[in-house]
Design a protein around this nucleic acid. Structure first.
Lengths: 155, 155
DNA sequence: GGGTATTAGTAAGTATGCTGATGATCAGTA
DNA sequence: TACTGATCATCAGCATACTTACTAATACCC
């Protein structure tokens, strides 16, 4: 494993690079400049309306400081509303706007097509196996990153 | 595949995030602040002395503009020498310094340990399968990224 | 030989992601 | 109630990565 070409880390970075590029091409072709990160935040917010930034960060395993800029841009694009929580004035509650929902709908086919394209080097069966191992690896090493995945706290 | 949690792209990003974090912990523990990208560039340069920045970028599939900052920092740390090519005055030829070689030697165990740790959620057999599929996927989708992998041109 | 296309390096601008620090707020406790 | 600790958002700073655009130098082609 002395060569960089034999190291898992190198190919993981490479595939992520490809995934991001494919996402931009597909979603860009659908007329949107939404980034993969912005999409993940928006889609997760749609399924979990009214959570705060820290909870959102935990759900998709982003660093708390990273999510700030992402949400900033989503708010600026009019896709997300951000309001101070009356019950806990530290927190900001997030909600997808009507435009945000419409955009998610509009780019949905492009997002799915990107997921297929980024693994186009594999057969369907291989892609299935790959995804299973990928999810197991991330679950197993979850606590090794600064921003581990966290569920929504039941309140 | 409607949920973000079912999308390959999301988990690829996640695993890359974990891989980078693990690399920093392991290599940092060995007393170095070398980043994964800087390591890949340095190690590739060691195996291909005297190439220019564009060739280096092609070998590890970096964007031409990204490699610039990386090489800048390696030069600043005294790990790499950069000199104008007499035969082609556009190009800058790169070479690992003695300190660079010593550093690569010193952090070698930490780098290997990081590669194992980032896949610690998988069994050895699963990790083997995963790496095979990973390499096949990146090879198959190579041309879909802006910075595809390129071999050293024979001169 | 001269015009054109290509290539290497660089710069500016934007978007992740991280570390470390700070201020405001809340929760629990003595 | 006052103190302590934890939590949320934010900021500054650094390192990837990308796009677009520019300059300098080379290669190609008529």
């Amino acid at each position: 494993m002395d060569k960089v070409d034999e190291m898992p880390g190198h190919h993981i970075r490479r595939l992520n690079q490809i995934a991001v590029a494919v996402f931009h091409v597909e979603v860009g072709g659908a007329g949107s400049d939404l980034t993969p990160v912005q999409f993940a935040a928006l889609a997760t917010l749609k399924d979990n309306p009214g959570i705060d930034q820290a909870t959102l960060a935990g759900l998709i395993a982003y660093d708390r400081t990273t999510i700030m800029g992402v949400v900033d841009r989503l708010v600026q694009k009019g896709l997300v509303n951000r309001a101070v929580n009356g019950k806990d004035r530290r927190a900001r509650l997030l909600e997808v706007t009507a435009e945000g929902l419409a955009l998610l709908e509009a780019i949905h086919p492009a997002v799915l097509s990107a997921q297929r394209l980024m693994l186009s080097g594999l057969t369907d069966a291989e892609a299935d196996t790959f995804l299973i191992l990928l999810k197991k690896a991330t679950r197993g090493a979850n606590d090794l990153s600064r921003a581990p995945m966290k569920s929504v706290p039941e309140s």
